[in-house]
Design a protein around this nucleic acid. Structure first.
Lengths: 344, 344
DNA sequence: CTGAAAGCGCTTACAG
DNA sequence: CTGAAAGCGCTTACAG
């Protein structure tokens, strides 16, 4: 293939000038730039990324880590991030943990990040203490999305999970429900993100504010997905004296709950009200009430916060100044899955 | 950071030996390998990907191109591919076309692929003639997933879309339906993949085999997603004399149809039966009958077909030998959204 | 505004 | 089995 010196020869300039012209540096005369671009076009020249990266010390690549790309929130975030990164000329290296400890170990080992990417985005992927320490040593720019994933010095974009859960629970309480159950993610899963912990707190806060005491028998943990929602709800029903309302920690769990309730012969919302968090693409199809969160906007904003410092000069690299998380708004969306509690 | 010569010095060998030992080449004595590994471990050494790629001529990276990562099929495929690639030590460069012509142009321009990746996977992304020509010149290994995306010399993994559609349509016909509508993707969208064309053919085949003539007024095109399914169904209903059954080209369109039917006051399946293709994660929650296709298996198999030749010696590089597509099985899944036509 | 030259950190024939 | 040395194809001070 053509290399930079082929272009230089054709344009009658040095390789240094070709390099500058092609990258649009200002220190090239218009006439020269024109000749270089024409030569590059004529020869179908494309810079060798490996060579450019080695010489320039930048990879033009961002690693994006998500727990599971197949889950609604992560898919939407990645799509928004991909768009932003590619617009800015960066490549996106995708890492899907997929619940495998092995993937996590390999990927998050800082040594595997070093020299491979210019920056890292961790979506709902909390780090352990040793990982944080090792990462800090790399002095790599990064950003996190979702709560419970803070890395010192990295910006974070998320919603207020406690408030979102409080709103969801209060919606059920306002409808007159008193036996309000909660189904959420499994804290035993070390790969799980921790948003569900905040959401439980919001649930309990709302109950207490209404003068109710959180009832452990109404709080079931399972996987943070459709199947988990189904299993958790089955467990709830198995315990007898079923709740009249269920707050699921995410829409996918809520959808699993709908299945379990249907299979148990319970009608939604006549027998049991259900609300989730997300505003999943199918929430409307299912008539699911939920707390909408701006997933794409979180991704876009996180990408922006990540790249902005890379472009400009970095005034205080390594000076892990405190960064406040950016909290985006959520919004109650009432559909058909929630209704007033029946008078006893 | 530590470089290869730091390791070499500590281990008392040359950088060439370090390079060989770290990559597990057989031409290193066990004792030497041990010393090198220990030194590398002690120094927390990780090879510089840029340098390794430039010197070695391999990127260890595969580009994966999907129309929209947020759609069920593509998310599942990417997850399976990601797993396989990372197990094999490859990085995954994600490209989400997102319906943007601009993305497509930039990405699929062969010059942007050259030297950047070792191989390409195109999922449901048909190429135009000039793109095919340019790609052929690069002599890059690749694989395609889904029909209508053939690239000469590349293997292809897909289902038999015509047969799947035929089975879906026949299921409706077997239930006694005669006014069977079809909703599918938009051929005006140049970025659309073409599976929906095959699916229309299967639909029409099944009608004809049952002695029915395809009725253009029962065949509506829209976007290949939830919103598209809703719009297409609304259009169907606007035309009057509604169908008693709808075959949607994919589950997401079927789900959109469910919404439109509900909003129009029509019951599923009492008034209208609905079937899709996919077996989307939420098909069960919605009680949607469908033709299940093995999305993860298609991704895994495609990744395998892509990497296998890269590992071994390539007997006939560039000799675009004909490759038959690998066709995976589909399976009718009957749930609650399809029922016998009511006697008139 | 432009060029000569060093250097980025590896891998790979080649020789032994 | 191991090493010396060339070379991968760029970018970047440095000098002018």
């Amino acid at each position: 293939m053509t290399r930079i010196d082929d272009v230089a020869r054709l344009a009658g300039v040095s390789t240094a000038t070709v390099s500058r012209a092609l990258r649009g540096l200002p220190t090239v005369s218009a006439a020269t730039r024109h000749r270089v671009l024409a030569a590059a076009e004529q020869l179908q020249y494309a810079v060798s990324p490996s060579a450019s990266r080695l010489a320039g010390g930048r990879t033009g690549t961002v690693a994006v880590v998500v727990p599971r790309i197949t889950r609604w929130f992560f898919g939407v975030v990645v799509e928004a991030v991909e768009d932003f990164l590619h617009q800015a000329g960066y490549d996106l290296l995708l890492h899907n943990l997929g619940g495998r400890e092995q993937n996590r170990q390999r990927l998050l080992h800082p040594v595997n990040l070093h020299n491979r990417v210019d920056a890292v985005m961790l979506v709902a992927t909390p780090l352990r203490a040793p990982e944080l320490t090792a990462l800090a040593a790399l002095d790599l720019p990064g950003v996190t999305v979702s709560s419970g994933t803070d890395v010192p010095g990295w910006p974070c974009v998320r919603i207020d999970d406690v408030a979102a859960a409080r709103t969801a629970t209060r919606h059920l309480l306002d409808l007159g429900h008193r036996r309000v159950a909660h189904i959420s993610g499994d804290p035993d899963d070390e790969l799980a993100f921790t948003a569900h912990l905040d959401r439980r707190r919001g649930y309990q806060d709302a109950l207490r504010a209404a003068g109710l005491r959180p009832d452990p028998s109404l709080d079931v943990e399972s996987g943070f997905d459709i199947a988990g929602g189904t299993r958790a709800t089955e467990e709830l029903l198995r315990r007898g004296d079923p709740p009249t309302a269920i707050f699921a920690a995410c829409d996918e769990m809520a959808m699993g709950a709908l299945t379990a309730l249907r299979d148990a012969g319970l009608r939604v919302p006549q027998d049991v009200s259900v609300i989730g968090i997300d505003d999943h693409a199918l929430a409307d199809v299912l008539g699911l009430s939920t707390i909408a969160q701006p997933a794409a906007e979180q991704g876009r904003l996180a990408a922006k916060l990540l790249l902005d410092p890379l472009a400009g000069p970095s005034p205080q690299t390594g000076a892990h100044q405190a960064v406040s998380p950016v909290i985006l708004d959520t919004r109650l969306v009432v559909r058909e899955s929630t209704a007033p509690a029946r008078a006893n």
